[in-house]
Nucleic acid binder design. Structure first.
Length: 581
RNA sequence: GCACCCAUAGCUCAGCUGGAUAGAGCGUUGCCCUCCGAAGGCAAAGGCCGCACGUUCGAAUCGUGCUGGGUGCACCA
């Protein structure tokens, strides 16, 4: 159940009734009517702007509409009181039974509580990570991986048909560099001094690649020019790096549905077909770009190139798809790849990029807009930097790579659950500080701990209840006499649980998984507050000695809380803690 | 020079596609707890939402122009 949707439906049907009775002109647009929790709890449980948004089109004063609407709403059993306030807000106070029914719904629906059909089963493709297959994943990739994966889980829960996809950038020059670097390690495996010159990848993660090459080729490639081995080693080395990357992703609990290869686009005619599709729309032409203004380019010279008229779809300048030597630019296979996604029938595309790729957003959107005829929206989320600290000091170290912190380093030190949660405690477009000491701290400052602790406390309640001989399985709890829950602190917690289905939709609508993390903190906070009040007011404790009915009702509330916590953590990809150690 | 992102309490950050007196944590101040419902609790102070216009019943939110910070700007991905 989604309480906010239910109440909104009530408001809308009441307005319909007013239109039918002539109290309002018919045919009004009701889409702008919203029902949301007021900021100030003193304003009741829910507020609607219906009277205000209808005032102008109806040609009546908001207060007049509000007064009539208030009477209609007050007639519903769920509504305890209606107040008209301010410029025409309708503040609704709901009956305790409403909140009690939310607790029951969470217990009955369990994992499905909050699931939404917002996505309508539409196919959405979330492309993320897409790191070059030239080495292990580093900390810069972690956030993108977590954000993409959590977003995919969120959209799945909200009713989309989600595909997670990794685009392997294995077509460019950097894979040649990888092959040459691996070749030096191959020589090293034969006891020769590797010539890891400037520009090659120095990381020792390539040593096993060199050994694998030795095992496969023996000494047959030694002292041969690269024309004899480049293509083959490129293949083998990038394959091994992808295995490594898959392993890194698995450490974080991330799995992809589809891996697409850039290299695989070459020679299949797909790039040509994509460019031809654009050419058919008169969006491809031969031309010369102006030099960028205000930036000194010593070696700038005008070049005749094949250009994509991206300006026709919102870009600032047209973009080259072919180099002056006739080869494709990196942009051309990117276009073909996105064209491929459109042709595979996705209704929406999402790309998760690093913030340093901000310059590609407009051109990529232009390409998708053109190739899909404007039908397929492309949302690009730019993920900002993560700054690592340890006890407030900037942190740099890697056992394996020497120069950068690997994903493995982060997960080994902080754990996958903590890493994932912390990566989602900021909006994607804001830089994030990650302090290895603080994220493992057991205190209220640490949101991961705070949320996990709430869940652990619920489990502790259930354990003690069982020891006391109470039935606390979900089916029993769902049958509890929930009218026992009447204290404001209890209803506040139930109210927060009631927000969950709504929050899922808000987060999904904006592709904003971080909202889940913030919601979790609030939910845990309300739960801890109730727990703490039990210290001073024994009547608020979850276990009431000798009173099975009351205990069962209170335990039902606690259990409903943990149902939502577990579900929300699941969207973040975090395992709920049964107990704290 | 252009584009994109950011700017909210002393600090770190939320803020629901435009709602009411702008919130949380830390820090500060005061009171309480120290009977394991342990890994603290309650409360207070603290704001020109970077600045200026505009849009309207109503703006932290939308538009325009600035200021300051970040990122990126033709045959590299």
């Amino acid at each position: 159940m989604n309480l906010f949707a239910d109440i909104r439906a009530l408001v809308v049907s009441s307005v319909d009734a007013m239109m039918a009775s002539g109290a309002l002109p018919s045919g009004l647009d009701l889409s702008a009517i919203s029902v949301e929790p007021p900021r100030d709890p003193a304003h009741g449980d829910m507020a609607t702007n219906a009277a205000m948004v209808l005032a102008k089109p109806a040609g009546q004063s908001p207060r007049a509409i509000a007064d009539t609407l208030a009477t209609l709403l007050a007639a519903d059993a769920r509504v305890a009181r209606v107040d008209v306030a301010g410029p025409g807000f309708l503040n609704l106070s709901l009956a305790p039974s409403v909140w009690q029914s939310v607790v029951k719904a969470a217990l009955v629906e369990g994992d499905a509580f909050g699931r939404s059909t917002l996505g309508g089963g539409l196919k959405v493709n979330v492309e993320f990570v897409s790191a070059n297959p030239t080495g292990p994943m580093h900390v810069g990739h972690v956030r993108g991986a977590v954000v993409g994966d959590a977003l995919a889980r969120l959209l799945g829960f909200a009713g989309w048909d989600v595909t997670r996809e990794y685009y392997i950038n294995d077509g460019g020059a950097q894979v040649d560099v990888l092959a040459r670097s691996a070749y030096e390690r191959y020589r090293e495996a034969h006891g020769l001094e590797p010539a890891i010159v400037e520009g090659l990848y120095p990381g020792d993660y390539l040593i096993p690649v060199g050994e694998a090459l030795k095992a496969q080729f023996g000494d047959s490639l030694l002292d041969k020019g690269e024309q004899f081995w480049l293509a083959e080693i490129r293949e083998i080395a990038s394959g091994m790096m992808m295995d490594e990357i898959r392993g890194d992703l698995a450490l974080l609990g991330v799995t992809m549905d589809v891996y697409s290869s850039e290299k695989a686009l070459y020679g299949t005619g797909k790039i040509e077909a994509a460019i031809q599709a654009l050419r058919d729309m008169d969006l491809i032409y031969e031309g010369t770009l102006e030099p960028p203004k205000g930036k000194t380019l010593d070696d700038w010279e005008p070049r005749q190139q094949t250009l994509f008229r991206s300006t026709a779809h919102g870009d600032d300048v047209d973009r080259p798809v072919q180099k002056s030597d006739g080869g494709w630019t990196y942009f051309a296979p990117d276009i073909a790849y996105h064209y491929d996604k459109v042709q595979r029938g996705f209704d929406a595309l999402i790309d998760i990029f690093g913030a340093d790729h901000g310059g590609y957003v407009k051109r990529m959107k232009a390409a998708v807009s053109a190739l899909s005829g404007g039908r397929v929206p492309l949302d690009i989320k730019l993920v900002q930097l993560v700054k690592l600290y340890k006890n407030g000091e900037p942190f740099k170290m890697s056992k394996r790579a020497g120069t950068f912190v690997t994903l493995r380093d982060v997960v080994e030190q902080a754990g996958a659950d903590v890493t994932r949660f912390m990566m989602l405690t900021r909006k994607n477009d804001v830089t994030l500080d990650f302090d290895f000491a603080k994220v493992l701290e057991q205190s209220k400052d640490n949101p991961v701990f705070y949320v996990q602790y709430a869940n652990a406390r619920v489990n502790s309640i259930l354990r003690k209840a069982r020891e006391a001989g109470l039935q606390v399985d979900d089916a029993t709890l769902a049958q509890a006499d929930l009218t026992q829950l009447s204290h404001p602190a209890e209803l506040t917690l139930a109210g927060k649980i009631a927000e969950w289905p709504r929050l899922v939709e808000i987060a999904a609508r904006g592709n904003e998984p971080h909202r889940i993390a913030f919601y979790l903190y609030e939910l845990a906070s309300d739960f801890h507050a109730l727990w703490n009040r039990g210290n001073d007011e024994p009547g608020l404790r979850f276990l009431q000695e000798g009173n099975v009915a009351t205990s069962t009702a209170k335990i039902a509330l606690a259990r409903a809380t943990s149902v939502v916590i577990a579900r929300a953590l699941g969207i973040l990809g975090v395992t709920p803690a049964e107990e704290m150690r």
